[in-house]
Design a protein around this nucleic acid. Structure first.
Lengths: 328, 328
DNA sequence: GCTGGCATTGAAAACGATTACATTTTTTCT
DNA sequence: AGAAAAAATGTAATCGTTTTCAATGCCAGC
């Protein structure tokens, strides 16, 4: 039996209402306040958050639903989200969906049952397209991936432009037969593919694209196959950090020279990209900024539910490294 | 206003008790059960977890307190913990302490207020030594770092042996002037240092050790300084993945040849260690196993609070790569 | 010495669920 | 068919808070 507010009241010789007021900075005389504080200290009392939430109808909790916390992009984002959230006195429930729509549905249901104030969500395409945001009962801020067209706030990278930027970078370095490897579960993969395809078309070149499950393993397998094919590309773009990692592993395995026989470029300036020779050319995403902006956006939405929807689009930054050195 | 169990009862024409029983698989006739289920579906009712927890006095929630979720070791462990937890119908609250004892205290307080069933905790040395586990009100399983001597369950790596194994590996490869860089906040750093020092002493060699804050940045700065010193070591051991990352960055920066002028070895088989030339020799920790074992241990403890304390000590696996090639 | 106003305080009603207990209905047995 | 046992259902208490509302005490003003 843990001690409750009633025990504290008894110990201090006051009513529970007074104890509650002391805890919540209500109007209480100095004398009683001191007695209550002594009783709290002596009894080691800890308020019960479930009871508090039930009574006050405010969870002061938000949900953060991402596809894989092992992806450095999401860990960084979630750290930023948490920092802002905790500063605002909110807790964060972190959930992994493994890009699985069933798990997404399950976690959304959980969020409803927790009566969270809001959710920050990196959804799969399947869920993003069909999600009934209005029926959820809490505001949603989409990150990394677009939500149902204009139905909720979002913080996104300018994926098309960034992908096109990579293509143009490679073209400028003399590469022509450029392939792209994209995740097949997210709108992000689709958008990056679109930017890639557009840029290739502008250059009058055919765009060879392949889609895989967004994991290093899948990317490694696909890249290995691709490298063995006739007419394998001279340069490869991977649409996120995990895919790039898989590609690099496949390349190493096959003993392919980078950039000699195959140039590489991708997304996410993960720490290894600088270290794996000859260094990976990548689009760096402003991860802290994404997390911070998403959380701030959610807080603003909670404060003023009727404000118009907003979409924050952030630019990526091209980090040039050895993997895309001029074709020799 | 969200719909409550009372609304469902009204809609279905039964008492709230019956609705509750339908939800909890209590004894209810098929006819009423159908009516209730229809009402639940129609109203979109979602049970309120706060109310449920308050009444049933069971949170079905555990806390996972780690020092830094950006450390791949902890992300992998937390994934494993979550998998086991969710399979057992428990939720996980994940907390980052940044190795800061104040934050640790704050989160432990939060865990009490959430009335969690138990906590899995990677504590700093300061907290581990002074923690009053009994007064917390819930069982604690320590991971990665030892808790107050024999006061709680723990899942640990055999740090001394692993560190000694690295030393002996380097000795076998012909290196003599071996330095060690260790984290200064955790007992893990201390234990790995102990294993390092013992092994060096057995070999009759002086052990040069330095301690830094457990971040890549701190390690990089310290390593840069060290490499500039007179009598810099021929080989360096870093006591975790982040420190090793910092060391490698410093080495690159300084243009030091690995292993030619400096051999490297460390802990944690993070994905980049395979990719950064010439590949890093590391002790691989069984991360999934650590998380799984910790969560299972906690579940068992919850089931039988009086069972004797247990300490699971897991062995690391030496992964030999180019960074410790025989001295030429 | 009242009266009105103000600041404290306490009693009691929520919040939304579960569950012990009482009551009703159904089944089973003679 | 009737009684006893078993099963289903409802009533109301309860979990630990916050908050409304009423009551109390104190002081100033007359």
């Amino acid at each position: 039996m843990t001690t409750s507010i009633k025990d504290v009241a008894l110990l201090a010789g006051v009513s529970v209402a007074t104890v509650s007021r002391v805890l919540g900075n209500g109007p209480v005389s100095a004398a009683l306040r001191a007695k209550v504080e002594a009783a709290v200290a002596q009894s080691g009392y800890r308020p019960n958050l479930s009871a508090r939430r039930l009574r006050s109808q405010a969870s002061r909790t938000i949900g953060l639903i991402v596809s894989d916390i092992r992806n450095p992009f999401f860990t960084s984002v979630s750290r930023a989200v948490e920092d802002v959230a905790y500063r605002a006195g909110m807790r964060v429930i972190l959930c992994n969906t493994d890009e699985n729509p069933d798990k997404e549905a399950m976690y959304l249901r959980l969020m409803q049952e927790e009566r969270v104030s809001g959710v920050i969500f990196a959804a799969t395409r399947a869920t993003a397209d069909s999600l009934d945001v209005a029926g959820l009962g809490f505001p949603v801020v989409m990150i990394d991936r677009a939500g149902p067209a204009a139905r909720c706030d979002a913080v996104l990278l300018d994926n098309r432009t960034a992908a096109a930027q990579l293509v143009e970078h490679l073209l400028g370095r003399g590469y022509r037969r450029i392939g792209g490897l994209f995740g097949n579960t997210s709108s992000t993969g689709a958008e990056r593919h679109a930017g890639f395809a557009e840029a290739m078309e502008r250059a009058g070149l055919p765009a060879a694209a392949r889609f895989v499950a967004p994991s290093a393993e899948a990317a490694q397998a696909e890249a290995a196959k691709w490298l063995g094919d006739a007419g394998a590309p001279e340069a490869l773009i991977a649409s996120n950090g995990l895919l790039l990692l898989g590609v690099v592993k496949a390349v190493r395995e096959a003993g392919v020279a980078v950039p000699g026989r195959l140039a590489l470029a991708g997304f996410d300036n993960d720490s290894w990209t600088e270290l794996a020779d000859p260094g990976m050319t990548v689009i760096e995403q402003p991860v802290d900024e994404i997390g911070r902006a998403a959380m701030e956006m959610l807080l603003e939405r909670l404060e003023r539910p009727e404000r118009p929807l907003r979409k924050v689009v952030l630019a990526g930054r091209l980090v040039e490294r050895g993997s895309s050195q001029p074709r020799g």
